[in-house]
């Protein structure tokens, strides 16, 4: 009933809200990531790391990328970040054709993408707070913005009260939470995670997955490359399986191995 009389509420361009049952306005392209016939060859003559990949990921989706080592998961993530350029085909991220994106605009693309790695990549000589604040400082955010946003984000990832610790004083799971906080502190529309639980024990991994799920529920698209079959089987999200650079399975609410 509350919606009556305000049927256009979705047109407020609140990017964090998926279109839901209402038709998506055209300006809000529903595909936040799209790959068309993408091929990536690293060395001339070598087997392509990605071979004619087509993939569409919608706003607010949670997608697992699975596959053996060398199947092309990391390459796919690197293409989305424009750390690499495709040898053939087109990559669209956040409505931009990355092949046409000039170099100086790349930083602005990356501000819309948060990234998390297996090895956390924290700065050892900075505190938890400073590590997260760093991501905002280097893109020139004003001090008052940092002072309010960073504590909120640390609270969100469950690290409230540990602002002054240094990375080496934290457990692996907590370090990954710091990394996630850093990736999410600028409220990106996309979060890319490259085996975020690869260095963590199963119990800790579950905690990290809960956190990523919570972030996904705020409307952030999450793409996660992983080897962790238990997690994939538990989460029941969309699964894209790569094998030697090709998409061999794309299944919503899938499991890790197709043969089980």
């Amino acid at each position: 009933m509350a919606v009556r009389g305000r049927p256009h509420v979705v047109l407020t361009l609140d990017r964090s809200v998926p279109c839901g049952y209402l038709p998506c306005p055209r300006r809000l392209a529903s595909h936040v990531i799209r790959l068309n016939n993408v091929t990536k060859v690293y060395a001339r003559g070598a087997r392509p790391a990605l071979d004619d990949v087509d993939l569409e990921i919608e706003r607010g989706e949670f997608v697992f990328l699975v596959g053996a080592s060398g199947s092309g998961k990391s390459t796919l993530l690197r293409l989305m970040l424009r750390e690499e350029r495709p040898t053939g085909g087109k990559v669209f991220v956040a409505g931009k054709d990355l092949s046409k994106l000039s170099t100086w605009k790349v930083p602005y693309l990356r501000r819309q993408i948060g990234t998390v790695f297996q090895d956390f990549r924290l700065l050892p000589n900075k505190t938890v707070f400073e590590n997260v604040a760093f991501a905002l400082q280097v893109i020139g955010k004003p001090r008052h913005h940092i002072m309010t946003t960073v504590p909120d984000t640390l609270e969100l990832v469950g690290l409230g009260g540990k602002e002054k610790r240094r990375p080496h004083e934290l457990s692996g799971g907590e370090q990954q939470r710091v990394a996630i906080a850093r990736a999410f502190v600028n409220r990106p529309s996309i979060l890319l995670a490259d085996e975020p639980t690869g260095n963590l024990d199963p119990t800790t991994s579950v905690g990290i997955m809960r956190l990523l799920d919570r972030i996904n529920r705020t409307g952030t698209t999450v793409v996660m490359a992983t080897h962790d079959d238990e997690i994939v089987d538990q989460m029941r999200k969309r699964v894209v399986e790569l094998d030697t650079g090709q998409v061999v399975r794309d299944q919503s609410r899938g499991v890790y191995g197709s043969d089980r």
């Binding site: 100086w104 930083p107 693309l109 990356r110 501000r111 990549r121 760093f134 280097v138 600028n186």
Partner: peptide, 13 residues
């Protein structure tokens, strides 16, 4: 390490 993170989070050149 720092510059790597800076690039990742979108700091300008």
């Amino acid at each position: 390490r720092e510059t790597g993170i800076m690039r990742l989070v979108g700091a300008s050149n």
